[in-house]
Design a protein around this nucleic acid. Structure first.
Length: 562
RNA sequence: UGGGCCAUGGUGUAAUGGUAACACAGCAGAUUUUGGUUCUGUUAUUCAGGGUUCGAGUCCUUGUGGCCCAACCA
């Protein structure tokens, strides 16, 4: 459904769309081909979602295609488990790659090209130690120095490289370097390493290779092989672009060659996004796994109850630019509320039950009252709610000494039980320690929802459950994982972990209608928030995750008065 | 401090030399049998100095500030 707004306002393009349109208009490219190139060494996060939406979105908008390419050039960090999860996540977001490729598909071609470079005197085998190579690299303000191996003849280099490939040398014994410029102001041009020796098992090529290409010697070349037109990556790769272009030039690839463009990665408040930090959270058990709903991974958002639409809308809204940014989490939450408000059926659940006895209601009577499944969706239908003498309400929907503007129950006050009756609180029942254990109320039979002739008015409307009909469930309430807006900026981000990021309600009360649900189903618990059925659920025990709370202006009001 | 990238409300993103706009957040109100939703109103922005121009967020220049680059990671 396209709104008038999107078509009426003149369309503004992000800088990459402008480039694409210019390239299409000039005839440089007839079709575009983008790629999403994750390294399969971890789970995808919301920052990757931005890149996925950008790359696939561009292709959809301009009639092109997008490849998924696993950048698997480092066998010691990469695993098939990650490959599978990445593909799942891309598809869940709603995108289907035109092709699924692996950088390792191109190892033979890369090797052949390396030989070409050596023959042309543009690459050499260096036996210097890692420390020596680092020393010779110089510093950003001082030029580097030439390696003693820099002028080895192409013939000898060919032999040496052959031996590297054949496994004649142990790990780290030597490397293949491009012969460029040890005095370049760009550190990446100071004879970068192209191949290193790793006698490691690769998740796809097995034990075939003893040498593996570095990122710079795989990425642009893979782009060439696939015919990528626009190779889009994040800002920190800007210094690599000169090398990206240089390596392509040396290979005499026919035009048009791919071009690298860079955009600013996504940062979210109260979130860390680096794979290293996320891995740490998992390894050190600060969370229950990669898909723990407190994580910013795509699989975690899915488990938490986020929809693909909400994430795509979010990605669209935050835009694409080259400026460092820190997006407020509230924007992401806005999009999931917006989506779920239209889609999620409403149900009653009481997380912290307080018993209410309707003293003027017959002991054994149960009546069924009708309520909307979703007031935002006329096609969502209705359901029946059991009403009886003993009910549960939310404990914080009652206050013995209410502050001003408190619309809920308090001694002597009245409140509407949603879709049911108005009740009045007559007395409070306490145990020996003074804890409130129940409320005695009376109801007004003529105030029945939809046929109210009582003439009574209440400001407050609360949800409730018939005690004898309610079932139990586990409900997991999540809060932000970090206490500070930008945990990555801290000396130690783990010091800012929020100790209360997970609150488990073992015995929440739910409508009987919620007893039969399946994993992934999403509901709005009226007045509480959106909740999603967790895969930990069993037929005996349903587990819900809170996706996001509802906006709560009363909570805000409370903090104001304090 | 060698090189590079960037600078617009609280947060993001537009405005392509011609009235600084959109979304979120905030605030106020209306509606509401969810303190939800919806609707209305509202606060608040061009890093600084100089220059070009009838006119500059935009072009030039000098500063300032932030980020990136010295992994056999990607």
């Amino acid at each position: 459904m396209s709104t008038d707004k999107s078509t009426a306002t003149p369309e503004s393009l992000n800088f990459i769309e402008e480039i694409v349109e210019a390239d299409l208009a000039s005839g440089k490219h007839r079709h575009i081909l983008t790629r999403f190139p994750p390294e399969p060494n971890g789970y995808l996060h919301i920052g990757h979602a931005k890149s996925i939406c950008l790359n696939f979105g561009l292709a959809q908008k301009y009639g092109g295609k997008t490849n998924l390419r696993f950048d698997d050039t480092n066998p010691v960090t990469e695993e098939t488990e990650y490959v599978d999860s990445i593909l799942d996540d891309v598809r869940w977001l709603g995108f289907e790659p035109a092709n699924i490729f692996y950088a390792s598909d191109y190892f033979d071609q890369l090797y052949a090209w390396a030989i070409q470079l050596i023959r042309d005197g543009k690459a050499y085998v260096d036996f210097s130690s890692p420390a020596t190579i680092a020393d010779m690299k110089g510093t950003p303000t001082e030029p580097g120095t030439d390696s003693p191996y820099r002028n080895t003849s192409p013939e000898e280099n060919l032999t040496l490289f052959e031996k590297m490939k054949a496994g004649a040398f142990p790990d780290g014994h030597c490397v293949l370097r491009a012969r460029i410029d040890m005095a370049s102001p760009n550190m990446h041009m100071r004879d970068p390493i192209l191949y290193r020796i790793k006698h490691a098992h690769h998740h796809r090529t097995g034990d075939k290779w003893n040498i593996y290409p570095m990122y710079d010697w795989a990425h642009g070349q893979s782009d060439c092989i696939e015919g990528i037109t626009h190779s889009i990556c994040t800002l920190e790769f800007i210094p690599h672009r000169e090398l990206y272009n240089w390596l392509i030039e040396q290979l005499n690839i026919p035009a048009p060659v791919p071009h690298q463009y860079e955009f600013a990665r996504l940062n979210l408040t109260y979130t860390v996004m680096s794979k290293r930090k996320l891995l740490q959270l998992v390894r050190e058990n600060h969370v229950r796994g990669w898909d723990d709903p407190r994580m910013p991974t795509i699989s975690a958002y899915r488990r938490k109850g986020y929809t693909p639409e909400s994430i795509r809308n979010f990605a669209q809204r935050i835009g694409v630019a080259k400026r460092e940014n820190l997006i407020e989490l509230s924007l992401l939450e806005f999009f999931i509320r917006e989506d779920l408000n239209k889609k999620a059926q409403r149900r009653f659940a009481v997380l912290d039950p307080l018993k209410v006895v309707i003293t003027n209601y017959p002991e054994d009577q149960v009546e069924w009252l009708e309520t909307d499944n979703n007031p935002e969706d006329e096609h969502a239908g209705k359901r029946q709610l059991a009403f009886s003498r003993e009910l549960y309400i939310e404990r914080d929907d009652f206050m013995e000494n209410p502050p001003p503007k408190y619309f809920r129950l308090s001694p002597g006050s009245m409140v509407r039980l949603k879709s049911a009756f108005i009740i009045k609180c007559d007395s409070v029942v306490k145990d020996d320690s003074g804890n409130i254990t129940a409320l005695h109320c009376t109801y007004f039979p003529e105030s029945r929802s939809g046929q109210d002739t009582s003439g009574l008015k209440t400001q407050g409307v609360i949800h409730w459950l018939s005690a004898s009909n309610a079932k139990q469930a586990e409900v997991r309430l999540y809060d932000r994982l970090f206490r500070v807006e930008d945990p990555a900026a801290e000396e130690d981000f783990k010091q800012t972990i929020n100790p209360d990021s997970l609150h488990i309600v073992e015995n929440a009360m739910i409508e009987p209608a919620l007893a039969e649900v399946s994993t992934g189903e999403t509901f709005q618990f009226t007045r509480l928030g959106y909740f999603c059925v967790d895969p930990d659920s069993t037929p005996e025990r349903i587990v819900f995750n809170r996706t996001v709370t509802l906006k709560d202006t009363w909570a805000k009001e409370k903090t104001k008065s304090v």
